[in-house]
Write a protein that binds this DNA or RNA. Structure first.
Lengths: 161, 161
DNA sequence: CCAAGAATTGATATGTTATAACATTCAATT
DNA sequence: AATTGAATGTTATAACATATCAATTCTTGG
């Protein structure tokens, strides 16, 4: 599967189908897909870009949902916990999951210039890291795999590429 | 090479040889291995654990080197820039490089319980991430590869392992 | 040696990211 | 309707990080 995010696609459909799958997952797992949570996912889905918690908060506040940080952080925690969104540790920012519903170990290509993010679809057995962990007797609970760099669009825009 | 950090080794030697290699690198590259910078590396080297910038700062301050955050952050920036230390993004914390002088793409096993960190030695061609990047025309500048979980020692210490 | 310039250090202030604690509202169940 | 548990909202503060400028030290050419 090609990494989503750097190439053209039917984004309206991308958004709709992700929301639908999130909705279905919540029904199936008895999770509450509340107004704030749903709106937060919509905000993240608007673009394949990472948004800071305070960016999300600003939008929520403008729309009349709580104006204090915990509102955004709780919604983001819910979304990441449910697998609907991921945190980009290298940016302290959050992004909607591009492979919602598929079992995957998220890995990202992160443009440090424009903050657009492509989510690659990697197998859950994580290559060298998995081997090293097994050898050391280490129990992996979560993996952070991010390539920070410059995306194709930004490379083209650079005078001295 | 086994990941360093979770198993016994001659740590005094580990520290000494790392400092020696750092020293040599600075001489070779005309970098200034000043008092603050060297002491900061020593602090990180004391254990194979990640320390926050303010943890480092507290020690520096106690020893009479500047008490304000920029002192610690500048030293840490120097060390990470020179490849003598790495930032663990998942913890917002810093650790001495365990493979100083060897060309490597750092990858870590990070214990979220005790913050000890093992640095695996992975090849610079980064498997799936590298492939995905090449396919997308993405220029990688830095990789963040961290497995967060529970280290062998903490697994043993857990009542309900 | 010493003056000029560059790099490093130190301090103040502030910006950014994140959470603790508690009150209130809402929804499901009895 | 009363109970209860989850979700929301607010205040306050903690934790992480940087911009700016002044003072010092370290080169290096004169």
């Amino acid at each position: 599967m090609p990494p989503l995010g750097f190439h053209k696609h039917d984004h309206a459909d991308c958004v709709r189908s992700t929301l639908d799958r999130a909705e279905a997952h919540c029904v199936a797992h008895n999770l509450k897909f509340t107004r704030v949570r749903k709106r937060t996912l919509e905000i993240l889905l608007a673009e394949h870009r990472a948004l800071g918690a305070y960016d999300v908060l600003a939008i929520l506040a403008k729309e009349g949902m709580g104006a204090a940080p915990p509102v955004a952080y709780r919604a983001l925690d819910f979304l990441t916990g449910a697998g609907f969104a991921h945190k980009i540790e290298g940016l302290n920012a959050y992004i909607a999951c591009a492979h919602l519903g598929e079992d995957h170990a998220p890995a990202f290509l992160v443009c440090t210039r424009c903050k657009s993010v492509a989510e690659a679809n990697t197998a859950t057995g994580k290559g060298r890291l998995g081997e090293a962990a097994a050898a050391a007797g280490f129990r992996i609970e979560r993996t952070v795999v991010e390539a920070m760099g410059i995306c194709p669009a930004c490379i083209e825009d650079t005078p001295c590429a």
